[in-house]
Lab assay of single mutants.
Amino acid sequence: KDKDLLKGLDQEQANEVIAVLQMHNIEANKIDSGKLGYSITVAEPDFTAAVYWIK
């Protein structure tokens, strides 16, 4: 199951987060929520590491 990592990002921010996570071998998903911006989700086992790397 995926957990929400970040919400309300613009496309550039979302792409930067995806890139950082991929560099650390964390699979992440970018979801277009329309006017609400983009959300990033990661698998539950990767959540703690993902939070660490996006600081």
Rank of each mutant, 00 (worst) to 15 (best):
E16V: 11
L36N: 13
D4I: 15
I18A: 02
Q11C: 14
D4F: 15
I26C: 05
N25L: 06
N25Q: 08
Y52T: 05
E12C: 15
H24N: 05
I54Q: 02
N29T: 11
A14T: 02
E44W: 10
D4P: 14
Q22I: 11
L36M: 12
L36G: 12
L21G: 01
V51S: 10
A28R: 01
A50T: 03
L6C: 14
L9K: 02
L9T: 02
N25E: 05
I18P: 00
P45M: 14
Q11M: 12
E44H: 06
L21R: 00
T41K: 07
K55D: 12
A19G: 06
T48C: 15
T41W: 11
A43D: 05
G8A: 05
I54L: 12
L21S: 00
P45S: 15
N15L: 09
V17P: 00
N29M: 11
L6Q: 04
L36F: 12
V17T: 05
Y38Q: 01
T41Y: 10
I54W: 07
A49I: 08
T41E: 04
S39R: 12
K30W: 07
V20E: 06
Q11V: 11
N15Y: 07
K1T: 10
I31D: 03
I26Q: 00
L5I: 06
K3E: 05
N29W: 11
K55W: 12
Q13E: 10
Y38T: 03
A49Q: 08
P45T: 14
E12D: 12
Y52K: 09
G37V: 10
P45A: 15
K7I: 13
L9P: 00
L36S: 11
I18Q: 03
V20Q: 07
T41M: 10
Y52V: 05
G34D: 04
D46Q: 06
K7H: 14
L5M: 05
N25I: 05
K7F: 11
A28K: 00
Q22D: 05
M23L: 13
D46M: 08
A19D: 04
K1C: 14
S33E: 15
K35N: 11
G34E: 04
V42E: 01
K7R: 12
M23C: 12
A19R: 15
E27W: 13
N15V: 06
A28P: 03
D32L: 10
N15P: 01
G37W: 05
T41D: 03
V42R: 00
I40M: 00
E27N: 13
D4C: 15
L5C: 07
I26S: 01
D4W: 15
I54N: 00
E16K: 13
L21C: 03
K7A: 09
A19K: 13
V42N: 02
D46A: 05
E12F: 11
M23Q: 09
L6E: 02
S33C: 15
Q13L: 08
K30Q: 06
T41G: 02
E44K: 05
Q22F: 11
I26E: 01
A49D: 08
L21A: 00
G37P: 01
Y52W: 07
A43W: 06
D4S: 13
E16L: 14
P45K: 15
M23S: 11
E16N: 12
L9Y: 02
G8R: 04
Y52F: 10
A28T: 04
D32R: 09
A19N: 09
G8C: 13
T48H: 13
S39M: 11
L36E: 12
D2S: 13
T48G: 10
V51D: 09
L9V: 04
V17E: 00
E12V: 09
A50S: 04
D46K: 05
I54D: 04
E27I: 15
K3P: 05
V20Y: 15
I54R: 01
E16P: 01
A50P: 02
L9I: 08
H24K: 04
I40C: 03
K30E: 03
V17W: 12
F47A: 02
Y38F: 13
D46P: 01
